[in-house]
Computed example of a mutant assay.
Amino acid sequence: MKTITKALYLLTVLIAFNGCGGNGKTGNIKVDGIQSKVQKVLSGNEIELKNGLKVQILGIKPTEHTKDYLEKQVKGETVIVIADSRQKQFIKSYKTKVKTYVKLKGEKYCISGKLLLNGTADLRQTAVHDSLEHFKAYPNIGGGRPPMSQTELLTYMKPATFMVYCQNEGLGTGFFINDNGLALTNNHVYDGSQNAVICFFGDDGKLDATNYRKINRVLYTVRTGEKERIDFTVFQVQLDNGEKVRYMPLIKQHARDGEKIAKIGCPLGTSLCDFQPGTLSHYNEGYFTHNIPTNHGDSGGPIVNFKGEVIGVNQSIDFNDVIREQAKGIAYGVDAVLIRQVLDENNIQYGR
């Protein structure tokens, strides 16, 4: 299994750096190198160019998440078509359909490779011959996920994040850490003592009250005290038969003080997916401070770096005890490295 997993990772990376080539002339228009604006998104892995060419993007499985990405990040942009040697090399007319890789003009990574590396798409193992050959020219590949833009990060985070509704009408935010429904939030949001459900966000960023799942059971929960800042619950969401969910991996090593980070949360009373960027301020023992604007309802939500790795769980806000106002710019997160250690010690299987 480890060999298969490693091979799939290599295919993911090599698709990102895909090269091209081949022969077999059947028309007078060379597919490789065609440039045009994306006029329409047809599905989660198909686009139509302004010149009339329809392109099925190799290497990714089409989903609503990949379609959303193409709509927001690729539509209207100029792309370069990259042919695979086992597919068409020449066409008679642009009014046809081809299977190729596609790259945004001026970018290093192919679209399919970028979606695979940041976890938005799943690998479709078809026609990766040229990528495999090209991979040999990149012996030092392996630096992990490429950084994302803010809009890419929001698109990536949204399907893995949800609102937690408790029986006592308390609420907060939570997120998945594997595709089988394992999730995290704060203990003060949900401690397992009452019934609760989670609600997903719709494509418009608003909570969809009709799309909910029950919380099945709590696997681990801890709250060390109001001033200790270590406050989280690991729980299992009851998914439909065969259902898989998007999730975000926990970081393996601490991010650096001053690094760009971001959060998604559900500020109380808005029922909206609220995305805010910021900066990691300082690590402490088991928690860290950050300057992301945070409100009640954001508790339990993910704080990630710009590679989409979870660095912590949004935990609390400081208040001025004299005037009882929110202390601007002082918020806390539970350290994801600590959470990884707890999961490992308790043999709880999470996404890697």
Rank of each mutant, 00 (worst) to 15 (best):
G286N: 08
N187R: 08
L132W: 09
G181F: 03
A83F: 03
I91T: 07
K260S: 12
A121C: 05
R256D: 10
Q87H: 01
Y9T: 09
E309S: 03
K244S: 08
V74C: 06
N23Q: 12
Y109Q: 10
K214W: 01
L268F: 13
H282Q: 14
N241R: 12
V218G: 09
K67S: 08
G76D: 04
D240P: 00
S316T: 12
Y283M: 14
P277T: 10
I317N: 12
L8K: 14
H134K: 14
G22H: 06
G351W: 07
D344H: 10
H65Q: 15
L343K: 02
A209Q: 14
P147V: 08
Q39R: 14
R145T: 13
N320A: 04
R213Y: 02
G19M: 01
H188T: 06
K206E: 14
H296P: 13
Q150K: 15
L239G: 02
Y138H: 15
N187A: 04
L123N: 06
D130C: 05
Q87W: 00
A336R: 09
Y283H: 15
G297N: 10
S193T: 15
V189M: 02
I317M: 14
P159Y: 09
F135M: 13
I292T: 07
S43I: 02
V41I: 13
P147R: 08
G269C: 07
K114N: 11
D204N: 15
